[in-house]
Design a protein around this nucleic acid. Structure first.
Lengths: 221, 221
DNA sequence: TGAATAGTGTCTTTAAGACACTATTCA
DNA sequence: TGAATAGTGTCTTAAAGACACTATTCA
């Protein structure tokens, strides 16, 4: 018997924390479970790794997310791996958790998703509350020193939109002038020449990200 | 058939990057593999998760480390989970990677460990070079804004020891006076009253950590 | 006393934060 | 013209970095 078959194998799944901003609130997308255990209960979207189908765990997470919202999330990152005998009644399990950021605008078209404010979630099965806590912590932390919050916005946005999203992800007020100075120093966004959002009052310059990848800053925003 | 048995399970293992400082160089502890594949090859210490024995993956990592160096590492943290079909010839596998910091002093007593400078490692099997790269990156990053490097020192040390270890983990020179000012502001260490390291010249005040836990700083060191 | 390590004071430069100011649009 | 949003200039405070200085021990 090969050595690797001498050890009973744990269950291996991925779970995803999908963030979006709705009504100026940080929200999570939950899915109603179809299978036991906990059928019909709201939980983080997730599922078993399919070793014939998925190239790796990140691929499995992408599949889960596509099944749920119908498209790929603009930002996806591995969060943490949760494991042990007590987190799932089916036995010793490993959940490779991911978090992703989804602009609310893209979401409106798909009807499946149920969103809940991150600070008033329903009771979650398994250890999904631990996963959520860790995801929120990571998001808040990276929001202070990277372009991460910009992935919650559509491709084109104003400096005011960006200012608001940084405040919402961090949960604090940021001085408007200082925020603008610092963002412009970071070279993460560029003005779209001649394009403005018009509305009730003075038109606002439109911007886009200079890079599709996450950019860390030297200092906090 | 329960739904969870409908999916073939991946192999699940833990791998550990064990850091220490030897001759003022950042080093890793490697183990000679006993089983196929790659028997007798140097690799990161690791092994399958034992679901009857290990409470969770971190527990498995602690077991692997104890087997290797004979005691628990003062600092242990989950690093990243590597997965996929191509990283192990035995099939689709998941490796939950951890990194740990071990003071060289403790290490000298145990004979088993083979240490290598982190920048001149031998060729490693599987994707262990990726694991090492990620571990070094994490260590360097956390060294800039936390008490992490202190876990490479014995419990009692001088400010000069600490200064050196911060320079070695970050790979840059740090001004002595500025370093001392900033460390003392962080309240992570306390002088041991009346205790000094005597030697060739002026005796140096001895210090210890105020907390056994990692302390993050507001700003970079 | 001078070589070696330990430890401190202070000046300059740079960044952070606060806040008041100007600009442009529409009703 | 005044209300609303957009965008800028500048002053004060605090932190970062550089560097010269003092202190203590032993040979």
């Amino acid at each position: 018997m090969p050595i690797e078959d001498a050890f009973p194998k744990p269950l291996v799944m991925v779970d995803t924390a999908l963030f979006t901003i709705l009504n100026e609130q940080l929200c999570l997308i939950l899915a109603r479970r179809k299978e036991p255990p906990f059928p019909d209960v709201l939980a983080l979207p997730g599922g078993f790794v399919h070793i014939q189908e998925d190239a790796d765990a990140e691929d499995a997470a992408r599949r889960v997310i596509r099944d749920k919202i119908g498209f790929d999330a603009p930002y996806l990152e591995q969060l943490y791996t949760f494991s042990g005998n007590h987190r799932d009644p089916r036995g010793w399990s490993v959940s490779i958790a991911y978090y992703a950021l989804v602009p609310a605008l893209l979401l409106d078209r798909s009807q499946v998703a149920e969103t809940f404010p991150a600070d008033t979630l329903p009771a979650l099965p398994f250890d999904h509350d631990r996963i959520v806590a860790k995801a929120v912590e990571r998001l808040r932390s990276k929001a202070t020193y990277s372009s991460l919050p910009a992935f919650l916005l559509p491709e084109v946005f104003t400096l005011n939109d960006l200012h608001c999203i940084y405040q919402q992800t961090q949960g604090i007020q940021l001085d408007k002038a200082s925020f603008r100075h610092k963002i412009m120093e970071q070279d993460i966004i560029e003005a779209i020449p001649g394009q403005f959002r018009t509305g009730a009052h003075r038109p606002a310059q439109l911007y886009r990200l200079t890079s599709r990848a996450l950019t860390p800053f030297e200092r906090k925003i």
